[in-house]
């Protein structure tokens, strides 16, 4: 059985949580899918050769992660199981996300969906998608 403290937790912890939520709410995201910051948090970047997506999903078995690219949309889905709480234990702070998750990212048009690499290291899933040859910058020689 899990006991939860009926009293408010430490005030500073509550203030910190509030501050974090505020920061997240005001951080403007360029995505058409809204401002909501889901789990896992994601960073997206790119070079002329590739598009790089980082999903911050700690403590997950990489085999349970599902990464798909369909019609220019990348989907990362998976599940994070809750750690078992021992009997007669009290949960004082409970902030870490648990449960199943799914996030989608619209990819640029010039990517090659067949040249994808995905690595999971230190709790971060790094997906690197190459851009199509034709879209890469080329120097034109003048004759």
């Amino acid at each position: 059985m899990m006991h939860r403290s009926p009293f408010p937790r430490d005030l500073y912890a509550e203030l910190n949580r509030l501050q974090r939520e505020m920061q997240q709410a005001f951080d403007v995201s360029p995505s058409i899918r809204g401002l909501a910051r889901g789990y896992p948090a994601m960073n997206v970047g790119g070079t002329p050769q590739s598009v790089d997506i980082y999903a911050f999903a700690p403590g997950i078995d990489p085999a349970s992660l599902d990464v798909q690219i369909e019609k220019g949309v990348l989907t990362v889905a998976g599940e994070r199981r809750a750690d078992a709480v021992p009997e007669k234990a009290t949960v004082h702070i409970d902030e870490r996300a648990v449960g199943s998750f799914r996030r989608v990212v619209t990819l640029p048009d010039d990517i090659d969906p067949n040249a994808v690499e995905a690595k999971y290291r230190d709790g971060v899933l790094h997906i690197s998608i190459a851009r199509k040859e034709a879209a890469q910058p080329r120097r034109i020689t003048i004759q």
């Binding site: 750690d83 007669k88 949960v91 004082h92 870490r96 996300a97």
Partner: peptide
């Protein structure tokens, strides 16, 4: 600020923190 879980039992405290990357 990394999110944490803090669980206390009779013998001590277990703290989990998410620090991806």
């Amino acid at each position: 600020l990394p999110p944490v879980d803090v669980i206390e039992d009779a013998n001590g405290i277990t703290l989990y923190a998410d620090l991806p990357g």
